[in-house]
């Protein structure tokens, strides 16, 4: 598959969701479900998707959605996956969780489920804050970003979730971004073709949280990739391959300012913080380049 026109026309999210305008996490989920197909159950902890799916007795998703407490998604999926397999069913069990529910409160359950080799796909859609509760800082919030609990900008760096997941040696893990749906679609397809614990980390720009106009949601996602602030790759059985859209950034990333200036949340970032962000990008790109070349 090489063009977006080849993605199936079936929709598993109706046009009536409770998502904000320009929401890229629901856009991402649209492609996740197109790739997964109807034999799929979503496990959703407290996050924006708890709201987006709509209120009882309605649901805007056309697959079963099991809502579960904040810290419990990966553990709930563990039980569900074992139950399906014990009944001889191959049903995809997909956790669709935000960054707070993954890098903070849910990380113990995530680690346990990966260590146990659970046959499931864990997707973290990362809008870099607690979006559902009105943009409070999470462990995934980047340095310098203003949130409602870091009104002067976050003073710590973003937790490196992918390195934590990689330490569990899953058979498949990847990064993705809502601005590149074909790349995301292919990664979900590949993940679901592999048995065992799989992980996809989607950067999901958030117009109200990141403070940009909702019509810029794709543009902001693309700037994250072009500046190398977010690198698209996949790691299959430990072998890392940088994905097409990130190839250019790997050679020559656009300056971080292009990404930062497109958003209101970095308005308090000092030149020192911007320089630190730029440095961390270069360090990360160098690390990924080395890993891909097999030098590390």
């Amino acid at each position: 598959m090489s063009t977006i026109s080849e993605i199936p026309k079936e929709e598993y999210i109706t046009t009536c969701t409770a998502a904000c305008a320009g929401c890229s996490s629901s856009l991402s989920l649209r492609y996740v479900l197109k790739a997964a197909g109807p034999d799929t159950v979503l496990v959703v902890p407290a996050c924006c998707t708890s709201v987006i799916q709509g209120m009882y007795p309605n649901t805007s998703f056309n697959v079963p959605v099991y809502n579960i407490a904040f810290a419990a998604a990966a553990a709930c999926a563990s039980g569900m996956s074992k139950a399906f397999r014990s009944a001889g069913k191959k049903t995809n069990v997909i956790v669709y969780a935000g960054d707070g529910g993954t890098v903070d409160i849910g990380i113990q359950a995530l680690s346990g489920a990966f260590e146990r080799g659970t046959d499931f796909l864990y997707i973290c859609y990362d809008n870099e804050a607690y979006g559902n509760t009105g943009m409070q800082r999470s462990g995934a919030t980047p340095l310098g970003a203003v949130t409602t609990t870091t009104p002067a900008g976050k003073t710590e760096t973003k937790k490196d979730l992918d390195q934590i997941v990689a330490a569990h040696n899953p058979p498949y893990m990847a990064t993705a971004c809502s601005a590149y749906p074909l790349d995301l679609y292919k990664k979900v397809k590949k993940a679901l073709s592999i048995e065992g614990p799989k992980f996809i980390h989607i950067l999901a720009p958030c117009p109200p949280g990141w403070r940009y106009n909702s019509d810029k949601t794709i543009e902001v996602g693309k700037l994250a990739v072009k500046t190398g602030s977010w690198v698209l790759y996949e790691r299959e059985y430990g072998k890392l391959t940088v994905s097409g859209p990130s190839r250019t950034a790997l050679k020559k990333p656009h300056p971080i300012e292009e990404y930062i200036r497109a958003q209101g949340r970095f308005k308090k970032a000092t030149p020192e913080i911007i320089a630190e962000l730029q440095q961390s990008i270069e360090k990360n790109l160098a690390r990924i380049k080395k890993e891909e070349e097999g030098i590390c």
Binding site: I68, A69, A72, A75, G79, S81, A83, F84, A109, R116
Partner: peptide, 22 residues
Amino acid sequence: EYIPVESEHSAMAACIGASATG
């Protein structure tokens, strides 16, 4: 299927996920 979970919170969460399938 015996799931050796990493905490009791996860033990009950796993039972919930499994039980929900019937």
